[in-house]
Design a binder for these strands. Sequence first.
DNA 1: GATGAATGAGTGTTCATTCAT
DNA 2: TATGAATGAACACTCATTCAT
Lengths: 192, 192, 192, 192
Amino acid sequence: MNKRESIFKTGIRLFAAQGFEATTTLQIAREVGVTEPAVFYHFKSKNAFFSAILEQACTVYVDRIDMLAIFADSAFERLAALIRIHFAVVAEEPELMRILLRTCPARLEDPDSTCITVYRKARNRLQAGIREILEQGTASGEFNSVDIDATANMLIAMLNGLMRQQVAGMDTLKGVEAATIEFCRRSLVVRT
Amino acid sequence: MNKRESIFKTGIRLFAAQGFEATTTLQIAREVGVTEPAVFYHFKSKNAFFSAILEQACTVYVDRIDMLAIFADSAFERLAALIRIHFAVVAEEPELMRILLRTCPARLEDPDSTCITVYRKARNRLQAGIREILEQGTASGEFNSVDIDATANMLIAMLNGLMRQQVAGMDTLKGVEAATIEFCRRSLVVRT
Amino acid sequence: MNKRESIFKTGIRLFAAQGFEATTTLQIAREVGVTEPAVFYHFKSKNAFFSAILEQACTVYVDRIDMLAIFADSAFERLAALIRIHFAVVAEEPELMRILLRTCPARLEDPDSTCITVYRKARNRLQAGIREILEQGTASGEFNSVDIDATANMLIAMLNGLMRQQVAGMDTLKGVEAATIEFCRRSLVVRT
Amino acid sequence: MNKRESIFKTGIRLFAAQGFEATTTLQIAREVGVTEPAVFYHFKSKNAFFSAILEQACTVYVDRIDMLAIFADSAFERLAALIRIHFAVVAEEPELMRILLRTCPARLEDPDSTCITVYRKARNRLQAGIREILEQGTASGEFNSVDIDATANMLIAMLNGLMRQQVAGMDTLKGVEAATIEFCRRSLVVRT
DNA sequence: GATGAATGAGTGTTCATTCAT
DNA sequence: TATGAATGAACACTCATTCAT
């Protein structure tokens, strides 16, 4: 069994549960069953360790967003898929998403890591994806006409808020996903 | 000038800018121009100090939510007012709201304070308010029929996400507020 | 009794006996009878602590060199006084002089302190003093003519070497001082 | 190419540049291009490694001193040769001499090595050599009569100081060597 | 001969907190 | 009210060294 892997996974669990500052390298080591320097053998520093985890969290998220490219039926179906993805990724990787959402921007600027690059990619993919959906939808007449920039911003905030709610709450109300999709459908899709 | 007040205000500023862990009592004392024990004279502990600030943040927020009771024209107007309030309170008290939003749940369970009570009151007020609006709107035929619980949850998540976006971003897109209101209007209000 | 003073004196003793790296802040604290953070309360860091000590060592040394200005009888008497001073200062403050001599240049460049300034002042005073003596002696015909720069350098090296020998050896041969003075007299003073 | 040799040479370079404590075995290994345990394969411990280097430094030095036995023209010529040798050995092996001069006595008492033996031999050879020169010179009437023990000590201190000056300074004043020899000639050689 | 992994024992430093004054 | 001095407990991190492979 790979000890580096164990350390990594324990790190994810503890950082997710307690946050970066409240988690000590000694605690991680103890839970894995190694000594503290072992953590530093596998990862250059606590910062670098956290960055590696954060990078994976970003990667997991970005990968899901990128899968959307295939769904091209209608603008609304793409939006619905985007919403579903945000619920699904929290359900699948709740700890990584909790870390991703809780990480304050200051930590991202850590010079030890390439993590900020991945983080920005995640943000940009989402923003670009939503804007594209709105543009496609309004251009084709499928959607009511809206202020694209502002509505895109609002939708990002909404998805962010929903993920946080899901991540925080132990009770995952399944109805929220459906309600969100319907809410958007009524608001955006032109009635025939 | 009141020293307790100075300490309190400096605490708000620093906790908002750096978070709880990254802010030290020594730093607060220095910025105020007193010595460290002076902070402990006025506040029992760092936790208690932070709780006092957090309580004020909750109070400020709850007070705004409670003001809504007066606006009773239509269900949608109440919802719109609620949205506007969330933008307004961030604009008026950005530091307090930043503290409120960034505070991780673990910190709220501090036994030193009554802060969690106020915090839960805030959450409950909002939840109750939104549910009431949705019930009123659907009952009167003003709104389309929706899953009230799930939609209320979604709206709370959305407001939360929007506040965070506003609090984090230096660029306050004014259009987002209008876009959000319009988004909700199209989704909820029955077309005539 | 002043604890800061105790820490300072213990620092001198231990740094002199063991050097900078081999002396730990914990050890200093224990010998004083306080806890480790007490050292950091009185001195910003181990570096800054050492710099303060080094500064005092430089000051003690510079003060002795400066006293020489009064002795103005003959060039040779001034040189003899300079030599005597180097023996005397080691006898009076052996620990400070040991620290001064052992300090490697790298440590002097510590940005925490003004210590390098004092150190350079010490070097320059000595160099200027010796050159002045040689110039005065050769100009007045009291000394044989010599290469002033090179001879000054040699004399500095000799004084340095003698101080080290004195500082290192527990057996302070009193004869060395006299032998050194006579050695220089025979070499420099013109025979009549 | 011999790896043990590479490690040895890199050790000399780093110990000379940074001193014993500030040089880590990991750093040595990396600069050589091997892993840390490789250093421990070739040398029992860091102490033993350093001792081996120190021993070579001593040997190099002792060998030069011993060469002097051949020069037997006059007492003064032997002394001049001794001085020249001290300048030459620094010019030829600056790193080894830097290590030799900077090594604090505590390190020499390492029980892992025979290094102290060689070190003492170096000291004793020099001391014996100088005393012999002085005895020969005074006995034959070539030198003025001096306190032999004390003058020998002074000359050792002087040579030590000069080596340090040479080792520390990047500016090797060639004049110093000549000035030193002339200084000693004037002081010791009886005028005819 | 050499390495990857791991460790025991420290190292300087920080921080909330206390207490006599 | 407020401070100077001090502390207990921790923290991230380092280093020489070991050992199975």
